[in-house]
Every structure is written in C-alpha cells, then in structure tokens.
C-alpha cells in the first residue's frame, strides 16, 4: 500500500526524531561587538521591509534578527552586559506552532525548522504573542520600495505583503540551494559549505551555523569545547536550537 499524507502523524515523527535538531547555531556573545552587520545582512538576504520612522515609533520595526542590550546595576555603577543577537530559536517544541488557527506556522519534519508558510497566514498574530523570544514581526502595511530598490530583492525568498507574519528561517533558501548543488554534484552537503546571511556577514565570526546532529561539524565542536553554553528560556521546554556563550 502506498503511504499517503494522512498516514503521517506529526507527534510520532517528533518522538522518533533525535533530541537535538538538525540545524543549529552557536553565538559567542564575548566576540559580538553589536555592529549590526548581521541585522543589515539579514534584511538584504530575506527581503525584509523597511518600515520607516513612523511605524518604527509604533514598535512595528521588522527585523528577523536584533541585537539586544541589557544593563546591570544602579545609575552610577551601570554595567552593560554583552550584546545578545536574538533571532528565531527554531524551537523543537515551538510555542508558536500549536496556536496558529491556519496552520501557517508548522514544523518542518524534513529540515526540523519552524516554517512560516506565507500563503497560509491570515495574520491573526497569535504566534507572535505566544513567542517567548519575541522574534516574529508582522507586516502592518505594504511597505513601498522606491526604485531602484526592488532590484536588490532576493529572488529565492518570497516578498511578503500586508497582513503576513514572518520570522527568521535559518536562511532555508540557502539550505535548499546548498542541498540542490550538492545533489547535482552527487555528494553530501559539506559542513561550512554555506552559512546563513548573519553568520556570513559577522566580521567577528561570533555566529556559527551548521548541523548539530553531525558531531564533526564546527557547531557541534564548539558546543562540545565550551560546555557552558546557554539556551535561552530552555526551562519552558521549547528545545531551542541556538546556543549562546558568554563570559568564557
């Protein structure tokens, strides 16, 4: 008998899957200078809209990655903690997924990432409200790109329109491109062959991207070498795939 789509049960696949996800990221906060190169690179790679001054004032800025800054201590003795790049953590058990009434944010069983399916999204914004990392952004308007800005749009990424939720995809278009290239050449994807836009742009190499289920990859090596990695809000049981290093 041929297997059909309805035969697949997501929970079964999830339970049978590995504890660690497929793709992961390691961020070294000690090297990060907060230069925002990743933020710019991400916006360029993923066709993210520029909302302008007025909408930014309403807190409608659209970024798939942002540099968080925190302060410690009282006024004269203020100390800044290391910069903290924050993007979608591609949770293994994502809080955004079960709340979507349109199944627009679903878990990719093949890549083990959280997907945002733009053509399904109806813009309820429930996912953004349920995201403990606050990394989803919503298209409140059709933000115009004056000529010649449309020429820099990435053809591999959908141009989102008004009323659509969006978030970091771990540059899934680059993953697919690398997989396609590797398949065309009849080999497996090599670690370090490609990386996300943010990791590529980082002048300090604070961001590393790769396969966490491959013990030989650079990401796995870094996680092994420095055992004090932190996964944010891990206590919520979200199984995030981004590891942060600080004070090493």
């Amino acid at each position: 008998m041929m297997a059909t789509l309805s035969d697949l049960k997501i929970s079964e696949v999830k339970l049978s899957g590995k504890e660690a996800g497929k793709w992961g990221m390691v961020i070294d906060q000690d090297i990060c200078t907060g230069c925002q190169a990743c933020v710019a690179a991400c916006a360029m790679e993923n066709n993210i809209s520029f909302v302008g001054e007025e909408d930014a004032g309403y807190g409608r800025s659209m970024h798939w990655i942002r540099i968080e800054r925190f302060w410690e201590g009282e006024y004269p003795e203020v100390k800044m903690t290391p910069n903290q790049p924050m993007m979608c953590q591609q949770c293994g058990q994502a809080p955004c997924e079960p709340v979507c009434p349109a199944f627009a944010t679903v878990h990719s069983m093949a890549e083990e990432l959280n997907l945002q399916v733009y053509n399904r999204c109806v813009g309820t914004r429930y996912c953004a409200n349920n995201c403990p990392y606050q990394v989803r952004s919503f298209n409140w308007r059709d933000y115009e790109r004056p000529e010649p800005l449309p020429n820099q749009l990435n053809p591999d990424v959908t141009v989102r329109r008004r009323g659509i939720m969006e978030k970091c995809t771990f540059c899934i278009q680059r993953i697919h491109r690398a997989q396609d290239q590797a398949k065309a050449e009849g080999r497996e994807v090599v670690d370090g062959e490609f990386t996300t836009a943010c990791a590529q742009a980082c002048p300090a190499s604070a961001i590393t991207f790769g396969r966490t289920d491959d013990p030989a990859s650079l990401v796995s090596q870094l996680m092994k070498r420095r055992s004090h990695g932190v996964k944010h809000l891990e206590e919520l049981g979200t199984l995030p795939n981004v590891t942060y290093f600080k004070g090493g």
Binding site: A3, L8, L115
Partner: peptide, 22 residues
C-alpha cells in the same frame, strides 16, 4: 506523494511545506 511511494523519508521531504514555500 506518488514519487515518494513507500519511502517514508522521501515522503517527509517531498510533502514538507518548507520544500517549496519559504
């Protein structure tokens, strides 16, 4: 789905939303 046939891994890849939509 037809192309995947009995192969579960292939079916997961070929019926994944992220294979075509991103």
């Amino acid at each position: 789905v037809e192309a995947a046939g009995e192969d579960q891994e292939k079916l997961i890849k070929l019926s994944d939303c992220g294979t075509c939509h991103y």
